[in-house]
Every structure is written in C-alpha cells, then in structure tokens.
Design a protein around this nucleic acid. Sequence first.
DNA 1: ATCCCAAGTGTTACCGGTAACATTCGGGGC
DNA 2: GCCCCGAATGTTACCGGTAACACTTGGGAT
Lengths: 334, 334
Amino acid sequence: MSDVTRPARPAGVREVARLAGVSTQTVSRVINNYPNIRPETRMRVLEAMRALDYRVNNAARALGTASTRTIGVIATDATLYGPTVGIAALAEAAREAGLWIATAYADASDPAAIDGAIAHVLAQGIDGLVLVAPHARMVAALRERELGVPVAALHADEGAGAQHEGAALAAAHLVGLGHRRIGRLGGPVDWLEEASRAQGAEAGLHRAGLSLTHEWRGDWSARSGADRAAEVAAAVQAGELTAILAANDQMALGLMAGLAGSGIRVPNDLAVVGFDDNPDAAFYAPALTTVRVDVLGDARRCVAEVTGGSTGGLSTASAPARLVIRASSAPLTI
Amino acid sequence: MSDVTRPARPAGVREVARLAGVSTQTVSRVINNYPNIRPETRMRVLEAMRALDYRVNNAARALGTASTRTIGVIATDATLYGPTVGIAALAEAAREAGLWIATAYADASDPAAIDGAIAHVLAQGIDGLVLVAPHARMVAALRERELGVPVAALHADEGAGAQHEGAALAAAHLVGLGHRRIGRLGGPVDWLEEASRAQGAEAGLHRAGLSLTHEWRGDWSARSGADRAAEVAAAVQAGELTAILAANDQMALGLMAGLAGSGIRVPNDLAVVGFDDNPDAAFYAPALTTVRVDVLGDARRCVAEVTGGSTGGLSTASAPARLVIRASSAPLTI
DNA sequence: ATCCCAAGTGTTACCGGTAACATTCGGGGC
DNA sequence: GCCCCGAATGTTACCGGTAACACTTGGGAT
C-alpha cells in the first residue's frame, strides 16, 4: 500500500547494528575508533555502514556528549577582504585541529542581528566562539556576558602582535626611504584591527623620533580611500606630506585612483604603503608596497585559545609580519 | 564539597517549566510561538526563560523534528571574490527565509576534502545543500548520489540566466563601440560560471555575426591575467585584437597591469571589460567597465529551490544583469 | 440543565547516539 | 581445577526538545 518508493529515513546505529549482528554500542565504538574491537567485528560493522549508507547524526551525538567539536564564528561584514580571509583561515585552522566552524554573519551595526547570530551559534552547542573583524565594544560585551563558552577574537592582539609589528615595519620602511612627513589613512576607529595597526604605525615612527603628520579615516573600502584623495593631494602640494600608510590595501587602491586625477604621482610625489597583501595588490598601478601578516597563525592561536589550548602538538607561533616592497614606495626625492 | 562554583549545565525546558509552573510542552509552545497560549502564561514562561538565561538546544530540537532550518553550503576556494560574495548572499537569502547556513570549505581539487565537507554538512541534519562556485563535475556527482536532501548550485544557470545574459551584454557593448576583433580571457573550463559566461559572450557576438578571435584561460586570479598579458599584447600589436572580455574583474586587473609594461594602452589600443563589478573595479587604472549580476537574487532562488520552493511570498526573480560602463572600454579608434 | 466545542494545558514516548555499567569468555598463574 | 583478569561485547538510561494525543475547563447553543 504505502510502500511506493518509501521515503526511507536514513539508517541509524540500530539498523547498522542489526545488519552487522552486533549491539549499537559496538557500532558506536567503531564509529569513534575505540580500541578493543576485534578487527573482524570492526570490518563487519564498517561493511554494514557502507551498505546502508550510514551517516552519523551530529544532533544526536551532540545531545549525548554535550560537545560538537565545532567552534562558532561570528563575522561582521563578510564582504571585506580582511574578514573573508580571517574566516577562511579559521576554517583551515579548525580543520587542522579536527574541528569544524559554524559561521554566522551579522551586520556589526545591528545589535539585534548580532544577538541573533550569537544565539544561533550557541544553539548549535559550539565548544568555543571566535569573533572576526569585531568592534572593540563587541568583544568587551561578549566577554562580559557569561556565555558558557570561551570567547576569542581574531587579530585582537591589542598593542602588540603581528598587526602591530607589521604596521611598525611599514613605518620603518618609509623612514628608511628618507620620508619624514608621513600621514596615515586609517580604518574605522572602533575596529580592533585598526587599533593595532594605528598603534603599530605610531610606534614605528616614534622609534625614529617622528609622529604622524596627518590622519585620515576611511571604512576599509576603496571608495573611502578615493574620498580622501583630494585632502591628501592638498597636503602633498602644500609640502606637508611625502608618504602615507594606508590601513589596508583597498583604501590604498582607492587613494591612488583618486590621486591620479590631481597630478600627484605615486611614488614620486607620494609614497603609499598598504596592509594585508591582498592578492590583487601586486597588480595595482603602481604595484602596492604592503604588509603581509600570518592570518593562519592568528587563526590557529584563536582555535587553541577557545579549545583550552589543546593544540595537539600544533605550534601556535605566528610567522612574523613581512613587508612586501613593490613600486608604490620610493626614496624621498629631495 | 563539590559545589565550588558549580559548572552549572545550562537550563533546559524542564527547568524553565518548573520555574514557570507549567509543563515542558507549554514551554516548547512558547518557544515556537504557538497560538492558544494565555498571554499571562506566555509571559510567565518568557520570564522564566530570561531568569535562567535559557537557550534552545538545536541538537535536541533537530533530533525531534528531523529539521534544522539550516541549509548546507559547500564552498570551494573561499578566497576568491566570486565565491565569497556568493556565500554572503546565501547567508542573507537564508536569513530572509528564516533559515541559517552551515558552511563547509573544501579544496575543489581534493575529493577527500569534498567528501568530508559533504559528510559534515549532512551530519548537521541540513534541509538542503547549495554548492558555491562548483565544478560541473561536482554538481553532477552530487546530484547523482542520493544524499536525501535537495541539491542546488549557485550560478548554475547553464546556457541562460543572469551570467549568460550579462556576458552577452558585455559583448554587445564592445560590438556597439565598433569592435570586431574581440577576444576572451576565460576562467577555468570546468567551472559552471565560466561555462555560463563563455556561452553568453559567444551568444552576444553571434548576434552581430561575430565570434571570438582569441581565447585565453586563467584561474580567476589577477596573476593569471597578468600571465596572459604578453600573448594578448602580441595579438594587439599584430592587429588581430582590439577588445577583450575577461571572465572576472581580477583577471582584467592583472591583464591591464601586465599590458602596462608592453606599451599597450587601455582603452585606446585595447578595450577591456570585466565581470562581477567587484567594489574595487571602479578604482582600477583605468576604471574597469564590467558587468554586475544580481547574486542575491540567484541566492534566493537557490534557497527556494532546496527548501521546496516555499519562498514565503518572497519573489525569486533576479534583477537583470547590468553593464557598468567605465573607462576601460572606448570606441574603436579606426 | 445538558451537550458540545474550542481554548488552553499536561503526559508520554520518541528522535539517534553514547556514557556508564554489566556481562561473557578465554587463557595464564598457582 | 580454580581463580583472576583483561579483552570484547551487550544493556540500560539518558541527553533536551517536540509530536501526538489526552485531558480540563468555561461558555454558548439547544
């Protein structure tokens, strides 16, 4: 009667157990690679699993074990290059540690969306939570609320770490080229990455007895860089500025595009240094000098942090930030 | 003894029910917004939930209902612009439909990783599966394997649809500018998007009685575009080529960067059109003429497709592809 | 007054794994 | 031969929601 192409609920441990002639517990042991299973029994179970196209049901497993081997990732603004790379790096770092990530996207400016995203990942029964590209406020708010899981933030090495170091490196590079009037095109003030990069830049200049002559602010987008071009051009023409540190490559791109119309030549009239080493940066015109940081290293550290430091032997040391010198930065021409 | 800051397992429906003086079923009804609950009862339950910081456990819910209101997303190559935007659009489309996405990243060239990713999202108890930026092979393989859930692919509108239409639009634009010797810089042949864009370009030219004079192939990256620059320059210098359609903006960027060294001027000697309308494209030098497609619309259609078309009244009609004309394309100069 | 019905609420079993504990069995030491 | 032990496997209850069904109640229709 009703057996017309039965929808056939997927097979569970019980079906597998029956087919293999063992108990469900034994099936469970095979699934989880427990010792003390006779090889022959293991084989029979594996065969039954294959025959029934068995797949574990994570929901059931999570219910029993209270662990999902998954870490939640909350990302704000998934269309920017930085966050995107961060998510990919976290996914890779998690994979290395035998974990998965559950990502929720939320507009950083919408508290309700953020709450929803957090509720969502928490409802998954995650073992830890990592924030990508977060606002300083957000991290604080989350750390304070007792969520019951460890919380970490990617690139949140305030005052030190790879981002800070990289920005200092970029500043030192410009100083080494003879520049003394150096400005900065920063990202949104409330982003942790911006804080690290800003502090790093200041620190790098400070070591040479300098400080920033100008500071502009963008929103990470190329457009926001272009929007500052007129002001930057004016400063250059006034002889007040010979080099600029952009907080990311895309703003540097926009800035250079905006400058092209105003007769300012990069790098002759203005040296430009970006940040991120976006894969496109080598093909900007001129090719952009920029800073590459070890995002994967940072991601590994975050994963280790939220999983209680059990890195399984994996090193969580980040490679040092590296300056990638291209055509957009040149020695000061008198 | 052992009550030193008890770890305190999170509260469940039972605790909430006890505190509110109702049954667990009533709590469940409140959680799921069922009708026929006295407002006062609802309030009591909500208050208890708040007091206990209650959070639903999706694992338990999924176990009972066999539905997670989550769709799985398998993404290959999460660092490219196209896939990234696709994932973000799917997340948004899912959100609109009251769903979430579970994303798994896998290297497209590693079958084991793909299998793992699929197993992972299936283990989550997803209601549907969407592939982003997939190879044609992969979609076929997945459709054929009976996974028990509907499968869709973003941008898989082979032979028609927005991608096809957009590419045709770009071709028509070049033809309209007087170009007759038009080449193409394509993406990897086995990508569905490449197929759509390639077919669209051919179709657009065909309508004018033309066909491609050259076809180069890249891997979507700017570098791969730059790597073809020498050959493209030779074709231009030989008078065999006056315009080129790039399969994405980043390859167009690389191509233009590579051409800069060989004395070919864009758009005077060669008109270049990209695809995607990457937010950076307006700031390339020269600003890139490109095609914008409604990725969100496509994402909505995928979500509707895998959830049985129940769009909840949301239209799944995509906005038509749009040509964005900038400085990289100019009329043919005799 | 009686019946009926819908609104509002409670009871019970179950989803599919797994932890904890129980059990069987074969062999080595005495 | 007896005891003990570890290897291999089975039994049972439970994780936290929810579907299915049962049950009260109060008021309107008759």
